[in-house]
């Protein structure tokens, strides 16, 4: 029975601390707390935890808050008034720029190649002149041995 009463008191403790209960309920809880050590301990702990809020309230503010805000606003204005080809914006076009340079390189390479078609043919011809003909297959090894005898 006492346990049941304690449980019901526990549920109301925070409202008791905040003064939200009727005077009748308040009185009952006060009476219980004066006799029950366990509930009284819990009440003290809860009250102490909630007191932390009072300690944290209204912290001292920095006297230079406006100066800092002004500085940040000036930075924002400065960055928004930079020319369109500012370094940061150029970075956005870097991939396109790299692709363009590679494409240009390939185009120039092909163009240079097309300028010297004859030289390319000569190289092909000179290579064919020096081509090694393997005639071993046409001449049987046995025949070669017979001739040597």
């Amino acid at each position: 029975m006492q346990k049941m009463k304690c449980k019901s008191i526990h549920k109301k403790l925070i409202f008791f601390i905040d003064g939200e209960l009727s005077s009748n309920k308040n009185q009952k809880i006060e009476e219980h707390l004066s006799t029950c050590q366990e509930c009284s301990k819990l009440y003290q702990e809860l009250k102490s935890s909630l007191n932390v809020i009072e300690k944290e309230k209204n912290p001292k503010t920095n006297p230079y808050l406006y100066t800092r805000i002004k500085q940040r606003l000036d930075d924002i204005n400065e960055s928004s008034s930079k020319p369109i080809f500012a370094i940061q914006q150029i970075k956005l076009f870097q991939p396109a720029l790299v692709s363009f340079i590679i494409g240009l390189g390939i185009f120039i390479g092909i163009s240079i190649g097309n300028f010297y078609p004859l030289e390319n043919n000569n190289i092909a011809e000179s290579q064919s002149e020096q081509y090694y003909i393997n005639d071993l297959q046409q001449e049987h090894v046995e025949y070669f041995l017979l001739n040597n005898e």
């Binding site: 944290e56 309230k57 209204n58 912290p59 808050l65």
Partner: peptide
């Protein structure tokens, strides 16, 4: 309003340095 704004932010963040940073953003 700086005391009011810092206090609100500190109520949520529980850290005065963070609360002041956020207060700056609020005014901006």
């Amino acid at each position: 309003n700086q005391q009011l704004v810092v206090n609100i932010c500190n109520g949520f963040l529980h850290n005065i340095a963070d609360a002041e940073d956020i207060a700056q953003e609020v005014f901006i």
